[in-house]
Amino acid sequence: MFQSRGGKDKSMNISNQIKGWFASLTIPFVLLVLWQVIVSLGYVPAIILPSPEKVFSTFMTNITQNDLLRHVAASLERVILGFIIGALGGFSLGLLMGLSRTAEKIFGPTFHVIRQVPVIGWIPLIVMMFQIAEIPQIIVISLAAFFPMTLNTLAGVRNVRKEYLELAAVNGFKGLKLIRRVIVPAALPSIVTGTTLSLGMSWAVMMAAEFFIDTSYGIGTRIQAGRSSFNMALVLVGIFTVGLIGYGLTITIEALGRAVNNGRDVHKEI
């Protein structure tokens, strides 16, 4: 499709966007009302399900007094670092296995066996090896990012159309230029999918890692603190924060993905 140009299209887009926001807020609003009703009618004891109002005030005091932002920052830092390490590793291994059948024979079976173990399953071993510190957290998160990135890069490289490789050959692309200018761009849609999945996995696994590995700061740590002090409002604050920030990360990485795809409609054949 051609990109829309001109003022009329733009104003249409904006009003559509506003409609879109309203649509996306419908379900949260209904849930909020339902929650309030359940609490008001006393179906569930307040100690298990505190009211929306209580959760909101807990949220505010956590921001102003209890360093919620610092906890979020600690988690984000871990996730971003782990994600970068894991995604770069996954990209490299996926590319290598995609380009060379020999490499796939060497690394493939080990990779596929290791990937059967849920990332959380590695935590006890990794903690024992590295003791309690930031390192095991980051290792676990990078493992979570590593597997989807490897698989999607591999699939992308393998599925590059034969016709594009022929086109590359008759144009004289060879070696590193062939990889950089043809194979990676052709595999890009799949690589972008891998990146999105990797970041999502990193963020999700961060919670588990923080539950199992003691740290002083972290949003998972904060939820854990809420649980052990029977402060369900705090637990809920943690859950909402994780959900919203995770959503923000997804939107950001998807926008980045569209940007590197250069606005082209990647699914359209020519």
Binding site: E163, Y164, L167, V170, P185, A186, V266, I270
Partner: peptide
């Protein structure tokens, strides 16, 4: 030089950049 019937251009490159690619290589 070779002109194919289909898949004759790289879809991620603009027209100009497609024409350039033999020279780039």
């Amino acid at each position: 030089g070779y002109v194919f019937q289909q898949y004759a251009l790289f879809p991620w490159r603009t027209a100009l950049s497609n024409v350039e690619c033999g020279l780039e290589a």
